[in-house]
Simulated scan of single mutants.
Amino acid sequence: MLNSYKGYRMLLVHAHPDDETINNGSTMALYAALGAEVTLVTCTRGEEGEVLVPDLAHLAAHATDSLGDHRVQELAVAMKALGISDHRFLGGDTKKYRDSGMMGTEPNNRPDVFWQADLERASDDLVAIIDEVKPHVMITYDEIGGYGHPDHIQAHRVAMRASEKSHWDIEKIYWNVMPRSVIQEGIDAMKEVGSDFFGAEKAEDLPFAKDDSFVHAMVDGNAYVEQKMDAMRAHATQIEVDGPFFALSNNLGLQVWGNEYYTLVKGEKTEPFDSKGYEQDLFAGVDITR
Protein backbone atom coordinates (compact mmCIF):
# COMPACT_ATOMS: atom_id res chain seq x y z
CA MET A 1 0.00 0.00 0.00
CA LEU A 2 2.90 2.38 0.71
CA ASN A 3 3.70 4.71 -2.21
CA SER A 4 0.41 3.74 -3.85
CA TYR A 5 -0.37 7.47 -4.06
CA LYS A 6 2.87 8.41 -5.75
CA GLY A 7 2.17 11.21 -8.23
CA TYR A 8 -0.82 12.59 -6.30
CA ARG A 9 -0.44 16.14 -4.97
CA MET A 10 -2.27 17.94 -2.17
CA LEU A 11 -2.09 21.60 -1.07
CA LEU A 12 -3.37 22.87 2.28
CA VAL A 13 -3.81 26.58 3.03
CA HIS A 14 -3.94 27.56 6.71
CA ALA A 15 -3.88 30.79 8.68
CA HIS A 16 -1.58 30.04 11.64
CA PRO A 17 0.75 27.31 12.91
CA ASP A 18 -1.37 24.61 14.68
CA ASP A 19 -4.45 25.07 12.45
CA GLU A 20 -3.12 22.43 10.07
CA THR A 21 -2.65 19.82 12.79
CA ILE A 22 -6.01 20.32 14.50
CA ASN A 23 -7.97 20.26 11.24
CA ASN A 24 -5.98 17.96 8.97
CA GLY A 25 -3.14 16.29 10.87
CA SER A 26 -4.30 12.72 10.30
CA THR A 27 -5.14 13.41 6.65
CA MET A 28 -1.72 14.91 6.03
CA ALA A 29 0.14 12.07 7.74
CA LEU A 30 -1.92 9.43 5.94
CA TYR A 31 -1.40 10.71 2.43
CA ALA A 32 2.25 11.57 3.00
CA ALA A 33 2.87 8.02 4.24
CA LEU A 34 1.11 6.64 1.15
CA GLY A 35 3.46 8.51 -1.14
CA ALA A 36 1.46 11.61 -2.07
CA GLU A 37 3.18 15.00 -2.24
CA VAL A 38 1.67 17.13 0.53
CA THR A 39 2.38 20.87 0.61
CA LEU A 40 1.36 23.12 3.50
CA VAL A 41 1.10 26.89 3.11
CA THR A 42 0.81 28.87 6.35
CA CYS A 43 -0.24 32.51 5.96
CA THR A 44 1.00 34.02 9.25
CA ARG A 45 3.25 33.10 12.16
CA GLY A 46 0.45 33.44 14.72
CA GLU A 47 2.06 36.33 16.58
CA GLU A 48 -1.15 37.29 18.38
CA GLY A 49 -1.87 33.86 19.81
CA GLU A 50 -2.44 33.32 23.53
CA VAL A 51 0.60 31.75 25.19
CA LEU A 52 -0.56 28.82 27.30
CA VAL A 53 2.86 27.99 28.80
CA PRO A 54 3.55 30.30 31.80
CA ASP A 55 7.32 30.05 31.36
CA LEU A 56 6.95 31.38 27.82
CA ALA A 57 4.57 34.24 28.63
CA HIS A 58 7.31 36.72 27.75
CA LEU A 59 6.94 35.76 24.08
CA ALA A 60 3.48 37.31 23.80
CA ALA A 61 2.72 40.22 21.48
CA HIS A 62 2.21 42.59 24.43
CA ALA A 63 5.62 41.60 25.88
CA THR A 64 8.67 40.85 23.69
CA ASP A 65 6.52 40.08 20.64
CA SER A 66 8.64 37.06 19.77
CA LEU A 67 5.91 34.43 19.75
CA GLY A 68 5.98 34.26 15.95
CA ASP A 69 9.57 33.02 15.86
CA HIS A 70 8.75 30.39 18.46
CA ARG A 71 5.67 29.18 16.61
CA VAL A 72 7.69 28.77 13.43
CA GLN A 73 9.88 26.35 15.37
CA GLU A 74 6.84 24.55 16.81
CA LEU A 75 5.46 24.16 13.29
CA ALA A 76 8.70 22.64 12.05
CA VAL A 77 8.55 20.00 14.80
CA ALA A 78 4.89 19.31 14.06
CA MET A 79 5.61 18.84 10.35
CA LYS A 80 8.35 16.36 11.17
CA ALA A 81 5.89 14.41 13.30
CA LEU A 82 3.40 14.29 10.41
CA GLY A 83 6.03 13.38 7.82
CA ILE A 84 5.60 16.60 5.81
CA SER A 85 8.73 17.96 4.13
CA ASP A 86 7.22 20.69 1.94
CA HIS A 87 6.05 23.56 4.10
CA ARG A 88 6.05 27.22 3.12
CA PHE A 89 4.88 30.57 4.42
CA LEU A 90 2.73 32.63 2.07
CA GLY A 91 4.87 34.98 0.03
CA GLY A 92 8.05 33.07 0.84
CA ASP A 93 8.73 35.17 3.95
CA THR A 94 7.68 34.16 7.46
CA LYS A 95 7.12 37.83 8.32
CA LYS A 96 5.30 39.05 5.21
CA TYR A 97 1.84 38.71 6.74
CA ARG A 98 1.30 39.24 10.46
CA ASP A 99 -1.36 37.54 12.55
CA SER A 100 -4.42 39.81 12.72
CA GLY A 101 -5.71 38.73 16.12
CA MET A 102 -9.41 38.24 16.79
CA MET A 103 -12.08 40.24 15.00
CA GLY A 104 -12.50 43.79 16.30
CA THR A 105 -9.23 43.88 18.26
CA GLU A 106 -6.55 46.54 17.93
CA PRO A 107 -4.17 44.38 15.83
CA ASN A 108 -6.81 44.24 13.07
CA ASN A 109 -5.93 47.82 12.19
CA ARG A 110 -2.20 47.30 11.71
CA PRO A 111 -1.23 47.76 8.03
CA ASP A 112 1.00 44.65 8.07
CA VAL A 113 -1.61 42.14 9.25
CA PHE A 114 -3.04 39.49 6.96
CA TRP A 115 -6.58 40.82 7.37
CA GLN A 116 -5.50 44.13 5.81
CA ALA A 117 -3.58 42.52 2.94
CA ASP A 118 -4.66 43.27 -0.62
CA LEU A 119 -6.56 40.19 -1.80
CA GLU A 120 -5.14 40.27 -5.32
CA ARG A 121 -1.55 40.59 -4.18
CA ALA A 122 -1.89 37.95 -1.49
CA SER A 123 -3.62 35.56 -3.88
CA ASP A 124 -0.83 36.16 -6.42
CA ASP A 125 1.58 34.81 -3.79
CA LEU A 126 -0.48 31.64 -3.60
CA VAL A 127 -0.92 31.41 -7.38
CA ALA A 128 2.85 31.13 -7.69
CA ILE A 129 2.79 28.09 -5.38
CA ILE A 130 -0.20 26.50 -7.11
CA ASP A 131 1.41 26.83 -10.53
CA GLU A 132 4.61 25.29 -9.16
CA VAL A 133 3.13 22.47 -7.09
CA LYS A 134 0.18 21.70 -9.41
CA PRO A 135 -2.04 20.19 -6.70
CA HIS A 136 -4.85 17.82 -7.59
CA VAL A 137 -6.58 18.59 -4.28
CA MET A 138 -6.68 21.78 -2.19
CA ILE A 139 -7.94 22.04 1.39
CA THR A 140 -8.78 25.28 3.21
CA TYR A 141 -11.52 26.88 5.37
CA ASP A 142 -15.12 27.70 4.56
CA GLU A 143 -16.33 31.25 3.90
CA ILE A 144 -16.52 32.09 7.62
CA GLY A 145 -13.12 30.59 8.34
CA GLY A 146 -14.68 27.88 10.49
CA TYR A 147 -15.48 30.20 13.39
CA GLY A 148 -15.02 33.78 12.21
CA HIS A 149 -11.32 34.47 12.82
CA PRO A 150 -10.27 37.18 10.33
CA ASP A 151 -7.12 35.31 9.27
CA HIS A 152 -9.11 32.15 8.59
CA ILE A 153 -11.58 34.13 6.49
CA GLN A 154 -8.75 35.80 4.63
CA ALA A 155 -7.03 32.45 4.05
CA HIS A 156 -10.28 31.18 2.54
CA ARG A 157 -10.55 34.23 0.29
CA VAL A 158 -6.92 34.01 -0.80
CA ALA A 159 -7.13 30.27 -1.50
CA MET A 160 -10.34 30.49 -3.50
CA ARG A 161 -9.22 33.56 -5.46
CA ALA A 162 -5.87 31.96 -6.24
CA SER A 163 -7.60 28.82 -7.47
CA GLU A 164 -9.55 30.98 -9.92
CA LYS A 165 -6.47 32.86 -11.16
CA SER A 166 -3.94 30.06 -11.40
CA HIS A 167 -2.94 28.50 -14.70
CA TRP A 168 -3.24 25.08 -13.07
CA ASP A 169 -6.77 23.72 -12.67
CA ILE A 170 -7.23 22.16 -9.22
CA GLU A 171 -9.59 19.21 -9.72
CA LYS A 172 -11.03 18.99 -6.21
CA ILE A 173 -11.31 21.65 -3.49
CA TYR A 174 -12.43 20.83 0.05
CA TRP A 175 -13.27 22.98 3.05
CA ASN A 176 -12.72 21.74 6.61
CA VAL A 177 -15.92 20.98 8.50
CA MET A 178 -16.71 19.80 12.03
CA PRO A 179 -20.10 18.00 12.06
CA ARG A 180 -22.45 18.82 14.91
CA SER A 181 -23.14 15.17 15.67
CA VAL A 182 -19.45 14.50 16.36
CA ILE A 183 -19.10 17.63 18.51
CA GLN A 184 -22.25 16.73 20.45
CA GLU A 185 -20.87 13.27 21.11
CA GLY A 186 -17.77 14.90 22.57
CA ILE A 187 -19.77 17.31 24.74
CA ASP A 188 -21.90 14.45 26.07
CA ALA A 189 -18.83 12.38 26.90
CA MET A 190 -17.22 15.29 28.73
CA LYS A 191 -20.38 15.93 30.76
CA GLU A 192 -20.35 12.32 31.93
CA VAL A 193 -16.99 12.91 33.63
CA GLY A 194 -18.02 16.28 35.04
CA SER A 195 -16.14 18.41 32.53
CA ASP A 196 -16.99 20.42 29.45
CA PHE A 197 -15.69 21.23 25.99
CA PHE A 198 -14.92 24.96 25.68
CA GLY A 199 -17.76 25.62 28.10
CA ALA A 200 -20.42 24.51 25.61
CA GLU A 201 -23.72 23.00 26.74
CA LYS A 202 -24.60 21.80 23.24
CA ALA A 203 -22.94 21.65 19.84
CA GLU A 204 -25.02 24.57 18.56
CA ASP A 205 -23.19 26.80 21.05
CA LEU A 206 -19.92 26.37 19.15
CA PRO A 207 -19.47 28.46 16.00
CA PHE A 208 -17.33 25.83 14.27
CA ALA A 209 -19.94 23.06 14.58
CA LYS A 210 -21.90 22.73 11.33
CA ASP A 211 -24.88 20.65 10.32
CA ASP A 212 -23.95 17.14 9.22
CA SER A 213 -25.38 17.87 5.76
CA PHE A 214 -22.19 19.83 5.03
CA VAL A 215 -20.10 16.67 5.35
CA HIS A 216 -19.28 15.15 1.96
CA ALA A 217 -16.09 13.28 2.83
CA MET A 218 -14.49 11.68 5.86
CA VAL A 219 -10.87 10.60 5.94
CA ASP A 220 -10.15 7.71 8.30
CA GLY A 221 -6.66 8.59 9.50
CA ASN A 222 -6.77 6.54 12.69
CA ALA A 223 -3.65 4.62 11.72
CA TYR A 224 -1.80 7.96 11.90
CA VAL A 225 -3.54 9.60 14.84
CA GLU A 226 -0.51 9.12 17.12
CA GLN A 227 1.49 11.28 14.71
CA LYS A 228 -1.27 13.86 14.91
CA MET A 229 -1.16 13.84 18.70
CA ASP A 230 2.63 14.28 18.61
CA ALA A 231 2.16 17.23 16.26
CA MET A 232 -0.44 18.73 18.59
CA ARG A 233 2.01 18.43 21.48
CA ALA A 234 4.60 20.25 19.35
CA HIS A 235 2.31 23.31 19.32
CA ALA A 236 2.78 23.63 23.08
CA THR A 237 2.16 27.39 23.31
CA GLN A 238 -1.31 26.94 21.78
CA ILE A 239 -2.59 23.49 22.78
CA GLU A 240 -2.61 22.39 26.43
CA VAL A 241 -1.82 18.74 27.03
CA ASP A 242 -4.40 18.77 29.83
CA GLY A 243 -6.80 21.05 27.92
CA PRO A 244 -10.06 20.29 26.08
CA PHE A 245 -8.46 18.76 22.97
CA PHE A 246 -6.60 16.06 24.88
CA ALA A 247 -9.42 15.66 27.40
CA LEU A 248 -11.70 14.86 24.47
CA SER A 249 -9.24 12.18 23.39
CA ASN A 250 -9.17 10.67 26.88
CA ASN A 251 -12.97 10.40 27.02
CA LEU A 252 -13.81 9.52 23.43
CA GLY A 253 -10.66 7.75 22.37
CA LEU A 254 -8.22 8.86 19.71
CA GLN A 255 -10.75 8.21 16.94
CA VAL A 256 -12.21 11.65 17.60
CA TRP A 257 -9.01 13.08 16.08
CA GLY A 258 -8.34 10.32 13.57
CA ASN A 259 -11.52 10.99 11.58
CA GLU A 260 -11.40 14.28 9.67
CA TYR A 261 -14.34 15.77 7.77
CA TYR A 262 -14.66 17.83 4.60
CA THR A 263 -17.11 19.69 2.39
CA LEU A 264 -16.47 19.22 -1.35
CA VAL A 265 -16.89 22.57 -3.14
CA LYS A 266 -15.24 21.77 -6.47
CA GLY A 267 -15.11 18.45 -8.30
CA GLU A 268 -17.26 15.36 -8.28
CA LYS A 269 -18.07 13.23 -5.26
CA THR A 270 -16.56 9.86 -6.13
CA GLU A 271 -16.62 6.31 -4.78
CA PRO A 272 -15.69 4.60 -2.55
CA PHE A 273 -18.33 5.82 -0.10
CA ASP A 274 -18.76 4.78 3.53
CA SER A 275 -22.03 3.71 5.18
CA LYS A 276 -23.11 7.36 5.51
CA GLY A 277 -22.42 8.11 1.87
CA TYR A 278 -19.24 10.09 2.59
CA GLU A 279 -16.27 10.00 0.26
CA GLN A 280 -13.42 8.03 1.82
CA ASP A 281 -10.60 9.19 -0.44
CA LEU A 282 -10.03 12.87 -1.25
CA PHE A 283 -8.12 11.90 -4.40
CA ALA A 284 -10.92 9.66 -5.72
CA GLY A 285 -11.62 10.44 -9.36
CA VAL A 286 -8.50 12.57 -9.81
CA ASP A 287 -6.62 12.30 -13.09
CA ILE A 288 -2.89 12.34 -12.34
CA THR A 289 -1.82 11.75 -15.92
CA ARG A 290 -2.12 15.42 -16.88
Rank of each mutant, 00 (worst) to 15 (best):
G68P: 05
G243F: 08
L282C: 02
F89L: 05
V286C: 15
L206Q: 11
A78C: 05
A60Q: 10
D169L: 08
Y31A: 09
V137T: 09
I183Q: 05
L56Y: 08
D281P: 02
F214L: 12
G267P: 06
D125F: 01
L90P: 04
M1L: 10
R180L: 08
P107R: 03
M103Q: 09
K266Y: 07
I22D: 05
A81E: 14
G91C: 05
E74L: 10
G146Y: 00
D205A: 13
D131A: 02
N3M: 12
V51W: 05
G186D: 03
T263K: 12
L90A: 12
K165L: 15
L75I: 01
D196E: 14
D196S: 15
N109Q: 15
M190W: 06
F246R: 14
Q73W: 05
S181F: 00
D169W: 04
D287M: 03
E50Q: 12
R110N: 11
Q238M: 07
H149K: 04
G243Y: 14
Q116R: 15
R180D: 07
G91P: 07
G25V: 04
E260T: 12
N176F: 11
T270Q: 10
V133E: 13
A78K: 02
M229P: 00
G91Y: 01
A29L: 06
Y262M: 12
E185G: 15
D242E: 14
R233D: 01
A15R: 02
R98W: 11
R121G: 08
G101D: 08
Y97T: 10
F197N: 05
M102C: 00
I183D: 02
G35D: 13
Q184P: 06
G104M: 02
K165W: 02
D142V: 02
K210C: 00
Q238I: 04
A61N: 09
I239N: 09
H156C: 11
V137C: 04
E279N: 00
T105L: 10
N23D: 11
T27Y: 05
K95M: 12
A61W: 13
F273K: 09
L282W: 03
S213N: 12
M79K: 07
L252G: 08
N109E: 14
D69K: 14
D205N: 13
L34G: 02
A122L: 10
D131H: 05
R98A: 14
R71T: 07
H14A: 08
A159C: 11
E106D: 13
R98Y: 12
A81Y: 01
T39C: 14
D169T: 02
L34S: 04
H14Q: 10
G68C: 05
I130G: 04
R161Q: 13
I187E: 06
G253L: 07
V77D: 14
E226F: 02
R45K: 13
Y262Q: 10
V215S: 06
T289H: 08
F89Q: 03
A217E: 01
L40M: 12
F208V: 03
P107E: 10
S181Q: 09
Y97F: 15
L2I: 10
K228G: 04
M229A: 11
E106F: 09
G49W: 04
D196W: 03
R161Y: 00
T94H: 14
F198N: 06
W257T: 09
I170E: 02
H235I: 13
D65G: 11
M102D: 04
L34D: 04
